[in-house]
Design a protein around this nucleic acid. Sequence first.
DNA 1: AAGGTGAATAGATGTCCATCAATATATCTA
DNA 2: TAGATATATTGATGGACATCTATTCACCTT
Lengths: 100, 100
Amino acid sequence: MDDRRFQKVAKALADPRRFEIFQKIATTPADEMCCGAICEEFPVSQATVSHHLKELTEAGLLESRSEGQFKYWSVNAGTMNEYIAELQNRLQLPKAKSRK
Amino acid sequence: MDDRRFQKVAKALADPRRFEIFQKIATTPADEMCCGAICEEFPVSQATVSHHLKELTEAGLLESRSEGQFKYWSVNAGTMNEYIAELQNRLQLPKAKSRK
DNA sequence: AAGGTGAATAGATGTCCATCAATATATCTA
DNA sequence: TAGATATATTGATGGACATCTATTCACCTT
């Protein structure tokens, strides 16, 4: 993972509302959500949600598929795993036992 | 890890210069660095370095010990591991194979 | 074709914060 | 005690960005 991507992911995760949106998509049973459904979950405008989805996508954390008028967003888990691995590598963290 | 701490860590890692400083401390052979030594590594003022050290400390990512005029900073690896575990938990990431 | 709905974009605004120079504080040394 | 060195703090500033409203774009339905 190159520097630019690494920093984009870090920034994308750093805004509280944006992380909440990401987490909501990550944990929704259907594994994907459309913009409208996300808007219902948070007290922010549709424009703001759309902006956050764009940032998360540019960071490689989200993917989308279009279906008619709708656009469905889902998590790209690979990027998150790469980011975590990159953190561990760059900081030379001894591999920690995973906690339950 | 509570929400406040989680967000503080995310923000602390999101600034490129601040992460570089953190990484430098994390990977220095002596496991600790003083402010002056860090200043020599980066083209920023001593005030800025001191500011970043404060932010990283408030996030729980750094610890320090004083020795005379000097203050030595080192990484609190526990916080980083907790942060990573928290990411995996909150996003329900399937445990990925660790890469070499 | 026309109206309706979902999402993206444009432009404006207020806030946060990285950065700096200057100063203060603390410790050491002569 | 006086100067020197190391770090912290203060106050100011410029830029980044989260957020909004308004508008545009895309697709659907009748």
